[in-house]
Amino acid sequence: MAGRSNARVPPLSERQWAFLMRVAVRIVPAVADLDAAGRSRFVAIVSKALAERPRPIQHQFGLFLGVLRWAPFLRFGSPFDRLPPEDEDTVLRWFLDAPVAKLRSGFWALRALAFMGYYGQPEVWPSLRYTPSFRGNEMLHG
């Protein structure tokens, strides 16, 4: 995948990437509407962020993706990526408030990466009505 060239050792497998993209759509619904260029910018931003993390953190993140994928089996009898969207959201809400801090932190990291991949793209800023200017004072007074 495009952005993974940044990593000396690819931090995520193809399968993990596919899973991450699926969860990212639940976190930022507009990820589903990204065109090919937007998706590859998303992947490039997230890959770079992951590649800059120490190897043990990358490893922990990969493990967390596995936990998130399989944890729903206990309640729903299927892995995360076979659930309908409402149940996926229920699982994510559980992780957001999970009783164990490590699980909350894992979800925090996943959420942060999804936000970074999407909101880190200047191309989407106008849709947020965020249009900064190097000469902001001129805009301040219309």
């Binding site: 639940r26 976190i27 947020l128």
Partner: peptide, 26 residues
């Protein structure tokens, strides 16, 4: 703050989070 930093500092995800983010000018 900037879009990513702002998004990260809000709790939650999904539609309600995205709705708030879609009006940074407010």
């Amino acid at each position: 703050y900037f879009p990513f930093t702002t998004a990260k500092n809000l709790i939650g995800f999904g539609a309600e989070h995205a709705r708030l983010m879609s009006r940074m000018d407010r």
